[in-house]
Design a protein around this nucleic acid. Structure first.
Lengths: 189, 189
DNA sequence: GGAATTTAGGAACGATCGTTCTTGACTGGT
DNA sequence: ACCAGTCAAGAACGATCGTTCCTAAATTCC
């Protein structure tokens, strides 16, 4: 039924993730997207509806296919040190969660749909870190203290990645993560 | 020497801080600034040179007059619980450090001048939190562990404020801060 | 092998972007 | 009183914004 697509939809979404993560929503123009995605204007609007539509598609894909694996790896970690290492380890090939970070700062306050996606994802990260925490402190399971600590731990992870983007070295980031994990691991909570 | 100004420069800068913090750099137009600052276009360009010039002026003012007092209060705190409370306490009247947060995320990666201002400010926050930490653990003074922990603590503060902006309740934020402080206060580091 | 349908390729839209220019009102120094 | 210098007010600039429209090319169904 008609001419076949000259581009792959998921591939375009992945490219959009990179562009939006690097330049932000307001800092990215449709021309930027057209150039970076290799998808031409008309196809972009036909497929995603609008710039905002492509953004939410990109954010959802990012959360589901790039952040979720990180969350799963954290939840499966045997201890907090390993969990923090898995979520903070930098690797050029790894997608990370930069778009989530930018979305939380600049889109969540003005876009309820983005806010919901971000909040849900952060709750999952809280729970995953809580699982790693309980793996070392089984007695603390279900306590309010664990909940408060995981809220803070997720915040720490976000903040460390934020600092890394703003200039803090990978070494400092890694050691900071290790220090926090050590503090939570070698003492009761 | 000519007609006197019809606006106050500091007052305009403070208004710019609010606008940039709320809408971000790319999300703020010069028209927005003209409308919010009550300063007319020509005067804005005569006084600040450009939109970017006003932004860096606003960021420097924010850091010096709004974040620095927070840093000083943290450094002067007798314990970490008090320090965390002082930096996280929300109050409609308090300026907070939202512009710093947004600058770190969206401008520092692309503007070396902003990156330098942000990095310097975060280092000061690190040192202030370190002071509060050492107040409770004098023996840890100067150790690499303190440095790593303060890097993480500043990250936690940034992350918690980020989460608050994205929807996390003030109660959760406060309790998360308290839980972290408790963990650092009641155990050796 | 048309007819119908979908995409690609661009031109083009009005609106808004950051910035500059023009004009006239106002003030201080001589 | 007058000139020099600063400011306010707003029109206007070219560039870019997000979006739409038009035409040609490519594919499936009959």
């Amino acid at each position: 039924m008609g001419r076949p697509r000259g581009f792959d939809e998921d591939q375009a979404v992945q490219a959009a993730i990179g562009v939006f993560a690097e330049r932000g929503y307001d800092g990215t123009s449709v021309d930027d997207l057209v150039a970076s995605l290799g998808v031409h204007r008309n196809s972009l609007y036909k497929t995603f509806g609008s710039k905002g539509g492509l953004y939410t598609r990109a954010l959802r894909w990012h959360v589901e296919h790039q952040v979720r694996p990180l969350v799963t790896a954290v939840a499966a970690a045997g201890d907090i040190t390993e969990a923090m290492h898995r979520v903070l380890a930098t690797d050029a090939a790894k997608p990370g969660f930069d778009l989530l970070l930018r979305a939380a700062v600049e889109r969540a306050p003005v876009d309820p749909e983005v806010a919901e996606v971000v909040a849900q994802c952060l709750r999952e990260m809280d729970e995953a870190l809580g699982r790693a925490l309980i793996a070392e402190h089984p007695g603390a399971d279900g306590t309010a203290r664990v909940e408060a600590l995981t809220t803070a731990l997720t915040a720490t992870v976000l903040g460390l990645r934020l600092r890394a983007r703003a200039g803090t070295s990978d070494t400092q980031t890694t050691e900071a993560g290790r220090a926090v994990a050590h503090q939570l691991s070698h003492h009761e909570i």
